[in-house]
Design a protein around this nucleic acid. Structure first.
Lengths: 344, 344
DNA sequence: CATTTTTGCTTAAACGGTTAACCATCTTAA
DNA sequence: TTAAGATGGTTAACCGTTTAAGCAAAAATG
């Protein structure tokens, strides 16, 4: 019935009456290069197929020093943005003959480092990394070990690395401009308290948009919450922003998860969107389409993001001394009713 | 600065003045068993630490025949249900010292088989599989090769395999019962056209609930749509179900993706939920909380689902002749306004 | 004191491939 | 006729571990 033992190169060689080396050459397409007679090559291939030969990737990788594996380090696979990215990376990698091993870092630099080490030990050929705060050292480490990596979505402007990201500044700026144009003049932003560049950029874009429109800014309108206690803090932030006297009429959520917390709270409080509070959000998910009032959101080009990251990494693997690439994609603002023209 | 070359067992052995074998024994905790002197063992460990030794997992796996890797085959990582499952499996596997390699099958048996083969070649120690239609052969194949696997969420009742799943029949039955109890009497179901057992079970549960309540059933109320053209078919299905004369007053979506298509269409058509149409859905996501009218849904115990699958697989690896386990979890119906008591 | 056991460590053969180097034989060119 | 080149293969080292088997010296036993 089914073969009990794995079939090896040796078995094929035996049946074909040739050496193991020859079989290896032929099955790796190096037959011509190594002057193997056409008929012999064909017969070897036929035998391999007949015996259903499956190469042992571990042995291959060990000897050749190449595992055809990419390590993907993301914040959290259960976040739809990253799940989608993972999906795209997976497909694109397979297209290049690579397999992906991913892991979630939970925005924790230590976890991220652990993960990276596990993957290094598994001899991945390179990494695609969504960086966390305080992870600059990891990148230095990787570079010192000559391990290739491409940063995705987030990066450190001071460190010269390959990166594929969205122009977070522009996205936030556009969001602010859009709200201003729609007649909102007291605009708040809820962000994570973070030193990460992409977060800072979003804040900067927001502030520049206010400035550009001559809109007032108040400290209480810029709420930065901690990652681990985000839910409660978002709720408090919304309360604070809406305090009588300096209540906002619009808010930008700088992240998908913040938006989810926020929207739930807004529902619970019975706040009318956009009449009482207009909304624009980063991130991207079915939620925004199906929310009571469809939500205006920043649409990132996830497809290009993921594919480009893989492509850069793969081409870097083929030619490691290629020069550093920084791809910055523009985001599109998808305008919905949650930021409809203000009626007042 | 940083070491250029990877440090090997050989390097440690050299520095410690012992053989490579001894180092291997010690670092694998087999020092005592192999009668290594305590002080020597300690010094070896110290040296290894000082040199920041990182074992080559490929070599380890090749030699020992164990890769400490689990293959996870799911339908689509960008579906929140599977993304969450992936997350849980990842964590639980790491707890046992395993790494996860996942891949999406897109509900396609061929893709699933390809994926499984890639992972076999990478010498995963076992699989956790969310089966697709017509994939029975794959399972036979795996078994014939003595490759361990556990089925997750879906299974084939005729094939005796380890499985962790939800009681889909009960979940659907409960959904129907709930709607009936809330006063709905013309209940429809939108499902995928599939021979998969879990889908059939959902249909069976739905029909039994109708029967139990003496409610009428009409062919047009049971709509089965094709996977690849689901969006358009769901919309047509809703139209059909609401045709004058035998319009439903409630509908059960048997899947997250079907619900998303359906809800979008319901929004577009301006159908009032639950006044004109009550809704219960399978799947689980933020969407259901944030939808204009919070949606009643079947809550599966994803945590137990994922963890148990890993646990069974790992214990099976330790002892392959363990007897087959079938874990069937009960689902909880989370009741929301979308299925509120009918007013008529 | 001679023998057996225990202790502590080394040797060397795997694991399943890849690949540089080598060796015949047969053509071709001078 | 003969040296050089082309053709079609084989040999064997190597990738970095694990682990069974072996071996000498020290300790225990009778």
């Amino acid at each position: 019935m089914a073969q009990k033992k794995k079939v090896l190169l040796k078995d094929i060689a035996l049946k074909a009456g040739v050496s193991v080396a020859l079989v290896s050459y032929v099955l790796n397409g190096k037959g011509r290069k190594n002057r193997v007679r056409k008929e012999k090559a064909d017969s070897i291939i036929a035998i391999a197929k007949a015996m259903n030969y499956q190469p042992n990737h571990l042995a291959k990788s060990l000897r050749s020093g190449k595992s055809f594996t990419i390590g993907l380090v993301i914040a959290d696979i259960s976040n739809p943005f990253f799940a989608n990215i993972a999906r795209i990376v997976e497909n694109q990698a397979r297209l290049h003959g690579y397999t992906v091993i991913y892991g979630s870092s939970d925005e924790d630099a230590t976890k991220s480092m652990d993960l990276i080490n596990v993957l290094i030990n598994r001899r991945v050929d390179g990494f695609i990394i969504v960086s966390t705060e305080k992870s600059e050292k990891q990148l230095e480490y990787l570079r010192s070990q000559h391990i290739l990596f491409v940063l995705l979505d987030r990066y450190f402007p001071a460190i010269k690395t390959d990166v594929v990201s969205t122009n977070h500044y522009q996205a936030a700026y556009d969001s602010g401009m859009h709200l201003a144009r729609m007649g909102y003049s007291r605009i708040g932003l809820i962000a994570y308290k973070s030193q990460m560049f992409h977060m800072k950029e979003r804040v900067r874009g927001y502030r520049d948009a206010l400035r550009k429109n001559g809109l007032p800014f108040r400290k209480k309108w810029l709420q930065e919450v901690n990652f681990l206690t985000a839910k409660a803090e978002v709720e408090k932030a919304i309360d604070t922003m809406r305090s009588p006297g300096f209540a906002v009429d619009a808010v930008i959520f700088s992240t998908y998860s913040l938006a989810v917390y926020g929207l739930k709270y807004i529902n619970r409080m019975g706040i009318q969107v956009p009449e009482e509070l207009a909304i624009v959000s980063f991130g991207q998910a079915e939620v925004f389409d199906l929310y009571a009032c469809p939500v205006t959101y920043v649409m990132q080009d996830m497809d290009t993001l993921g594919k480009t990251a893989v492509d850069i990494l793969v081409s870097k693997m083929d030619n490691p001394k290629q020069k550093v690439q920084r791809v910055l994609l523009e985001a599109q603002l998808v305008k919905r009713r949650s930021s409809a023209k203000k009626i007042s």
